[in-house]
């Protein structure tokens, strides 16, 4: 861990754009420069590492710590067991959770929401605010991962680029014919199935989250068999941000009327249709599509950011 000032660093330092300076400030001033010194060599071995002495010191407190944590854990488990004893038996009808709320959802769900899947009607109509929060949590998580892991094009990491080149060479020298052919056969069907699960979310088990995860899986399979460059021809960072933020905004706007009117369940501007048909359920189908898009993009985004630091 030597701190050699790199001559290239100084060159780039002198002509900083304001955005770059803000970025530097957000990153903690010297961080982008220092990270260059921690080059990624897979065979790097630490000499005169202080960790050996550290391990000795940690070992002293280790036993105390383990005993202490076992005590905390046993206390927690016994508290929860006592709570479990006082609960009504598993699978009984007369429990406090089976109250008038769930009765209302089951009995009036079809006429209120027009969705044959009661759970979908519940989470996307009665409790749509909850689902908006879920989608926002996913969106914020992927944003946090982007902040942490996305590579800076102005401040490239030489070792990471070398690793990318090495992986490309390996991919060229060993063409995975079986994987590619199987992927090209499977991916259309996986995408079709994901779209089916999303579009049938209101009349059968499924919905935006599960269907979106399936579609994200198809994208991941495509990326791992054909390489990220092929994916980036139709799905790059711009399309990613566009799709996720548009879907979230469409969701928020299309449900905003009921949020603002105190969620009194007004008539939606989309007719409910015949229950059980694809075009039924009012707003539930478009909301499912929005959620599915967010989830598919997020799943692929996580994979791509973790494996190569870019989308």
């Amino acid at each position: 861990m030597t701190n050699n000032p790199n001559p290239e660093n100084k060159k780039t330092d002198q002509k900083l754009s304001p955005i770059r300076m803000l970025n530097k400030w957000v990153n903690g001033e010297e961080l982008p420069m220092e990270e260059k010194d921690f080059e990624l060599h897979l065979d790097m071995k630490e000499t005169n590492h202080p960790v050996l002495t550290v391990r000795d010191r940690a070992r002293k407190f280790r036993k105390v710590y383990v005993v202490f944590s076992i005590c905390i854990c046993v206390a927690l488990i016994s508290i929860m067991m006592i709570a479990t004893i006082q609960m009504p038996p598993f699978g009984e009808v007369d429990v406090p959770t089976n109250n008038e709320v769930s009765e209302k959802y089951i009995e009036d769900g079809l006429t209120d929401t027009g969705s044959a899947n009661i759970v979908a009607g519940m989470i996307l109509d009665y409790r749509a605010f909850d689902t908006l929060g879920e989608s926002t949590v996913l969106f914020i998580a992927v944003n946090a991962v982007i902040i942490l892991l996305k590579r800076d094009p102005d401040n490239p990491d030489l070792s990471e680029e070398a690793q990318d080149r090495r992986e490309e060479l390996i991919a060229q020298s060993k063409p995975n014919v079986i994987l590619k052919i199987m992927a090209s056969v499977l991916i259309p069907f996986i995408l079709l199935y994901g779209a089916y699960v999303v579009l049938n979310g209101h009349i059968s088990p499924g919905g935006g989250f599960s269907g979106g995860a399936i579609m994200g899986g198809a994208l991941i399979l495509f990326a791992s068999s054909y390489g990220f460059k092929k994916v980036s021809t139709f799905f790059n960072f711009k399309t990613f941000t566009g799709i996720t933020s548009t879907a979230l905004l469409v969701y928020a706007c299309s449900k905003a009327y009921s949020f603002f009117t105190g969620a009194n369940h007004l008539e939606s501007f989309i007719p409910k249709g015949i229950p059980g048909a694809i075009l039924s359920g009012g707003l539930i189908l478009p909301l499912n599509i929005c959620v599915g898009m967010i989830v598919a993009c997020t799943m692929y985004g996580f994979y791509s950011l973790f494996s190569r630091g870019d989308i």
């Binding site: 959770t97 769930s102 009765e103 089951i106 009995e107 044959a116 009661i118 759970v119 519940m122 989470i123």
Partner: peptide, 26 residues
């Protein structure tokens, strides 16, 4: 499970509680 096949007969005695399913999703 609260995904009815027969849409004409919807009574609370047929289906399990749908709220925990939604909470698990969250």
């Amino acid at each position: 499970a609260p995904v009815p096949q027969d849409l004409t007969n919807l009574s609370a005695e047929t289906f399990i509680n749908p709220i925990p399913s939604g909470l698990v999703l969250t």
